[in-house]
Design a protein around this nucleic acid. Structure first.
Lengths: 207, 207
DNA sequence: GTCTATAAGCCGATAGAC
DNA sequence: GTCTATCGGCTTATAGAC
């Protein structure tokens, strides 16, 4: 974590090159993890091979299985990293709509984006199982605990649905109306949508 | 289309079995197309091989490329079939919210579901390009033409985002709050969400 | 701690027989 | 119109050398 040698750097002994990280297990593991995070987010679980991940980290494919056991276990660790920093869900209920809307219209989307990782990996059943558990633990449960009123789990699930759906159309399918829209205008459009789920009008409540 | 011989049936000459469709090009092509529709919807573009599609249709893999040129062209035809019947988008603006909400809570989801096909195939860049064009032609353009008021393209894109996002959480990730929810209650929750996009309150309109 | 080499299998696409 | 057989390349995972 504290040693950013994910690319080739000098070793302090004057030498540089593909073997610069040689004999530093922790740095190698970290380099593989970061490489996998980028690759899985860009191409999805099935769209990436361990060779590709290893090459980008400056090692051979064998070390991926050496350190992580299998591609599937590597993916599980990547998912935890991607969902660790929670910049989409605010800590207080009054900021939820603002945070979510702001995150969706941010000029530069976060490079570590769990939702993008999810959208490109849900075709694989094993990846989906891992993602289901992570979404539940990192988003669904904290969010429904924060929401006031009845049927919080239902409204939390719809909140996440909107978040994922917009990310899909905007970032994955590249819909021009969302990808290149005026940020402020889009944000004003999104906030009432989220607000309807955070604070549903009393009259519209299902029995 | 008019000849439903996607599975093994008799040929009218008394014979039945795996070769019943032998020497009927149109029926073979149709059988492959239907098999591919099911397989791509269930497992996504990268999750299915041409051998699998061919086996389920009762033919060999070679015929898939014979009739469709390539896996990619087969996928393009499947996408057109999946998006041909438009049961999600109503013909009049007043029914849009009701139709969309009803489709999302239907007890038995349609076997031909373009959104499910999309969600499980967007990891592949070539499949995504095909899907982008089909979504635009079959959903975005008709919907934004139907919506009254300003920024119809933006509201149409968000309408589709909600549709896709709910389908994702509900059908792909299997979120219990959406997958096993009370249908009537969920529908009452969804309709105002769509209605906010179809008829945005004048005061909340972005400038 | 990291390498090369390889096992075992799946992929899409094609050649040629009938 | 459909078949078998195969090409070349990709995949994950592992054995053994250094």
């Amino acid at each position: 974590m504290d040693n950013d040698k994910s690319t080739l750097v000098d070793m302090g002994d004057g030498s540089t090159g593909p073997r610069a990280r040689r004999r530093d297990a922790a740095a190698t593991r970290e380099a593989i993890l970061r490489s996998a995070l980028i690759a899985f987010t860009d191409h999805g679980y099935d769209g990436v091979g361990v060779r590709e991940i290893a090459n980008a980290a400056g090692v051979t494919a064998m070390l991926v299985n050496r350190y992580f056991g299998s591609k599937e276990q590597l993916f599980a660790e990547v998912v935890e990293v991607a969902f660790a920093e929670r910049t989409l869900i605010a800590d207080d209920v009054e900021s939820l709509s603002r945070f979510a809307a702001a995150a969706l219209v941010a000029a530069e989307p976060r490079s570590v984006d769990g939702f993008l990782l999810m959208l490109r990996s849900v075709a694989n059943p094993r990846a989906t199982e891992i993602l289901r558990a992570a979404i539940d633990a990192h988003f669904q449960l904290p969010l429904q605990a924060l929401l006031p009123g009845a049927r919080a789990h239902e409204r939390a699930a719809l909140f996440l649905s909107v978040l994922a759906g917009v990310r899909l159309m905007q970032q994955v399918l590249g819909n021009p109306a969302l990808a290149t829209a005026d940020a402020a205008a889009l944000e004003r459009r999104l906030r009432p949508l989220f607000e309807l789920l955070v604070h549903p009008p009393a009259g519209a409540e299902p029995s």
